[in-house]
Amino acid sequence: MNNQNIAQTFAILQENKKQWQDSTLESLEKNPFFILVGCILSLRTKDQMTRQVAERLFKIIRSPQQLLSYSEDDIAQLIYPVGFYRRKAKNLIDISKILIIKYQSQVPSTLEELLELPGVGRKTANLVLTVGFGKPGICVDTHVHRIVNRWGYVKTKTPEQTEMALRDKLPQEFWIPINSLLVLFGQNICLPRRPRCGNCSIENFCDQVGIEKRETQTK
């Protein structure tokens, strides 16, 4: 795959997205604090569980001040059963304190500032920038990393390498939508194992790097 057919690929995936149940964080309210907290919760946790816990949490907590009105143990119980819930509870408490003291209770809007927050890596920081603030950024998770390499669009070993390669190659108009589109595509069609190539509407554009024909599903 190359930039000659990338626009058509994204248009097809955008249309296909209507058929798939969207449990990604991007379907939440576009509030930077919600996106930040939701992304912290999502690490090592399935999207559907993250969405359920986030929606439950945001019914009672909508700001750093409200979060700090609960103890660390209370937060841990509220976000259970997400993975590493006790560590995440501590990070959420620490992040809320920093937001109040350093940023007047607002979520910072630069990559550098976001990366200084406890438990925040490039994936989380980029998602907050793109979804929370509508700023240019490329959020690369395991789905994005796997799929763009499978397409043959990039050739990288890690998600961070993939982000940098996409920043160099991918037209900026596709930076923000790439994560939500490829997460849903990766959950429904381009699976990690036995991808459903027979049902893939962009199969003709895909180099199928690393895929043996016997590994694919026809339905």
Results as ranks from 00 to 15, higher is better:
159 P>G: 08
51 R>V: 03
130 T>M: 07
126 N>G: 12
130 T>P: 03
60 I>H: 12
130 T>R: 00
44 R>V: 10
133 F>S: 05
123 K>Q: 08
62 R>F: 12
45 T>C: 14
51 R>N: 15
31 N>L: 08
129 L>A: 05
146 R>P: 10
88 K>Q: 09
54 A>T: 11
71 S>A: 11
122 R>C: 07
40 I>Y: 01
124 T>L: 03
146 R>M: 07
110 T>E: 04
161 Q>T: 04
61 I>P: 00
125 A>T: 05
77 Q>D: 15
68 L>C: 07
53 V>C: 12
86 R>Q: 14
75 I>Q: 05
94 D>T: 03
115 L>R: 11
126 N>M: 14
32 P>K: 01
89 A>K: 03
65 Q>A: 12
52 Q>M: 03
52 Q>V: 12
141 D>V: 07
128 V>E: 00
124 T>V: 13
84 F>R: 05
139 C>N: 08
151 W>I: 03
60 I>C: 04
111 L>K: 12
93 I>T: 11
104 Q>Y: 09
106 Q>T: 11
71 S>L: 03
89 A>H: 00
123 K>A: 03
100 I>F: 02
160 E>H: 08
47 D>P: 04
111 L>E: 14
73 D>A: 15
125 A>H: 06
58 F>H: 03
62 R>A: 13
83 G>H: 04
159 P>N: 10
111 L>P: 08
126 N>E: 08
72 E>F: 02
155 K>D: 15
152 G>A: 08
55 E>K: 11
100 I>K: 01
40 I>H: 04
45 T>H: 04
55 E>P: 10
53 V>G: 05
104 Q>L: 13
77 Q>N: 14
104 Q>I: 01
74 D>E: 15
139 C>H: 04
110 T>R: 02
102 K>D: 15
57 L>A: 01
149 N>M: 09
43 L>E: 13
145 H>N: 10
40 I>R: 02
88 K>N: 11
38 G>W: 01
138 I>S: 11
73 D>G: 00
30 K>D: 08
152 G>Q: 10
50 T>E: 12
42 S>F: 06
136 P>N: 10
71 S>W: 07
144 V>H: 06
88 K>S: 09
53 V>H: 09
121 G>M: 09
148 V>K: 00
61 I>S: 07
41 L>C: 13
52 Q>N: 13
77 Q>H: 13
145 H>E: 07
43 L>M: 14
30 K>C: 08
90 K>N: 00
78 L>R: 04
93 I>W: 02
36 L>F: 09
123 K>H: 10
59 K>P: 03
51 R>M: 15
85 Y>D: 04
66 Q>D: 09
61 I>Q: 09
161 Q>C: 04
140 V>G: 08
48 Q>M: 10
93 I>Y: 05
102 K>R: 14
32 P>M: 06
92 L>N: 02
105 S>M: 01
55 E>Q: 13
141 D>I: 06
61 I>L: 10
46 K>V: 13
51 R>A: 14
145 H>V: 06
82 V>A: 08
42 S>R: 00
106 Q>F: 02
31 N>I: 01
143 H>N: 12
41 L>G: 04
104 Q>D: 15
40 I>F: 02
97 K>S: 08
38 G>D: 08
91 N>R: 06
33 F>G: 09
105 S>C: 07
150 R>T: 03
147 I>W: 08
